[in-house]
Design a protein around this nucleic acid. Sequence first.
DNA 1: TCGCGGATAAAGTCATACGATAGAAAGAGG
DNA 2: CCTCTTTCTATCGTATGACTTTATCCGCGA
Lengths: 253, 253
Amino acid sequence: MRLHVQARPTRLNPDRLFGQVAHRLAVAIITGASPAGALLPNEDDLKGEISVSRTAYREAVKFLSGKGLVEAKPKSGTRVAPREAWNLLDPDVLAWHFEADPNEKFIRDLFELRLFVEPSAARLAAQRRSAADLQRVEAAYRGMVENPPYAERTVNADLAFHEAIFAATRNPPLQCLAPAVCATIQWSLFLKAPDDRFFFTASLIDHERVLEAIVQRDGELAAARMSGLVIDSLNSTLRLLAGRAEAIASKIA
Amino acid sequence: MRLHVQARPTRLNPDRLFGQVAHRLAVAIITGASPAGALLPNEDDLKGEISVSRTAYREAVKFLSGKGLVEAKPKSGTRVAPREAWNLLDPDVLAWHFEADPNEKFIRDLFELRLFVEPSAARLAAQRRSAADLQRVEAAYRGMVENPPYAERTVNADLAFHEAIFAATRNPPLQCLAPAVCATIQWSLFLKAPDDRFFFTASLIDHERVLEAIVQRDGELAAARMSGLVIDSLNSTLRLLAGRAEAIASKIA
DNA sequence: TCGCGGATAAAGTCATACGATAGAAAGAGG
DNA sequence: CCTCTTTCTATCGTATGACTTTATCCGCGA
């Protein structure tokens, strides 16, 4: 199954040939089509597999090896690395996951991480925000209100809202988790969109309450409300995942 | 200044030529020797700069571009990316930071992140640990006790302790933060080592208390104690950083 | 049975060539 | 003198073939 979730900007230029090769390989690895330990097509053989020069292929492999997806050793070949070695928080790796079926465990894990990190981020944002930071958060919130639910602009505004909060923390390493949070939100919105818009209005209220706490510079309140937001989102997402599982089960039966 | 902190295993093979090139470029970027926006040596010029073929150089650039350190645009040149684009949580990027001077802000930021994440990780570990998980944590703790303070084996045992806790969470994305936590610990130990061993025994007690909570499967207790451990470590590290700053100031005066 | 050493296959490195195009320089027009 | 257009060059992207290095495998001999 292919999910049509618009990808966030990644570091991989899809216009370039090596980028397309890297993308293809990455998707094959993440979906499990190429299992861990599997040999990638030999650098000489690939003329048959994919018609591309060794140069482009090798650059793709280097790109992926930097993210821990593959490991190349002379004589033994280039192999798919075990999942433990993957950098699951890398923006590209997260983006590539959208081309695979939604994996419930993975989404739950991401939500768990989000639950640990995002309330703390909101606390810092409330404490440290500048006027410009606040404007950015407010602009994103307006974008969510003023556009129709689940429209592309709305989704982008939602992501921008959370990104703006991370930016306001003034903590660059922490900001590097923003892509993971955004990926989680995208999964969640993708699952919710087909259903109805009840979730959306509820989520809007959650966002408004977080914004309000940040306006008031109340760190603890912002953290608590962000917790509430994430938990609400998690619960509705889990309900939908359960629904999907049932639908699949009934289709089999 | 060059810090002799043993690097954790990275994804970059230093035996390979492209790996050495990538390492050189990365260090130049992270130390600031090559500022954001700077053009990297032209692919043809580099014969003078570093005598290496275009192939190896280009593969190094691809490796770095995957981590957001550089941006290659056709026809306009390969430039150092702004720091916001760097993946600061990437294990390699963290490791390369050890070749630069310790940056107090960066270390504080990492500690902040650690303070958000690690207590939660300890909570999960206490709740979900298997017998094997516990053995791993215990083995690491024994390694800390049985070796002399600040010895290489002791440092590795300390890192292994925290890694084992992340492993016990059974949350792969969360586990990807382990390298960031380990990097923070390495900075902290590097700063503490020259001083004395008071910090070490205090830290040992903190570790023991965390271990005990995990043995008891008490999640809240584990989280609270891990919080205490991180805060203790942060405080002593900040004190040493302040001392360093004074030492530098007095040298100038 | 064990260990040594050569054969071998695969990745790594190099040199070269050509294509495409962004961006600068030069020239035409007002 | 300034602006717009054209040309031109520098630089990255891709392809190819040759050679080097490395680690695995296998067979030989002790």
